[in-house]
Amino acid sequence: MSNDVDNSRRKFIAAGVAGTAGLVLAPGVTLLDMAHARPAGEAASSAKRWGLLIDSTKCATGCNDCVTACGKENGVASTGHPETDPQWIRKIELKEIKSGRSHSLPMMCQHCAEPPCVDVCPTGASFKRADGIVLVDRHICIGCRYCMMACPYKARSFVHEEHEDQNPDVPRGKGCVEACTLCVHRIDKDQQPACVEACSAGNHGAMLFGDLNDSNSEISKRIATFATTQVRPDLALNTGVRYQGI
């Protein structure tokens, strides 16, 4: 049950290695590097909390760039069975019933601080990484789908069919539940999630990725300045994905 094998030893060694590297290399260069990427071999830490800010006023109806990019990055493709096809990210078109005001936004795993999917998972396959990313450990997922019953955002999909030609960085297969990973494999390489990258590449600027724990990050500054909302705030799940203009 415990996955914290030799944690303290590893931390000690990592610290030692980092220290040695600092002595050998020019100190200035090391510090600059450390400030950016997490060095290989170091675990994700709770000092960071990754999040997204989505500005629905900049998100155009009919634009699907983020969805396409996600599918390409993670190998999530349609198999011609829309009802059983997994969807990690989807565009929702909204229309206020009273006023008729309509807008559009991408919906995906909200990476809650209090994720119901993690609470209900019988094996602990659903888990939240130290830096706030909610993931499924497919090694111990038994495919019971209780997390899908528990998720208020319909963010999770069950893989109904066999898959081949996975991206080596994104393992996924039949019989397990999956969802948006916030492109954790890219984040670990100090890159942005594929959807965010595609959104800015298309000059839409509707998605912003960053560290919610760092008050100097752009995302934190924006949240501190503008009115932002969480989806289903009544559930008090403290989501990592925030929206503007809903």
Binding site: V120, P122, T123, I142, R145, F158, G175
Partner: peptide, 20 residues
């Protein structure tokens, strides 16, 4: 279950917060 072959995991990896 999606992975019925993992019965042993269902019985050895237990998240005690889960009603299941």
């Amino acid at each position: 279950l999606g992975r019925s072959d993992r019965l042993i995991i269902a019985m050895t990896y237990l998240n005690l917060k889960s009603v299941f």
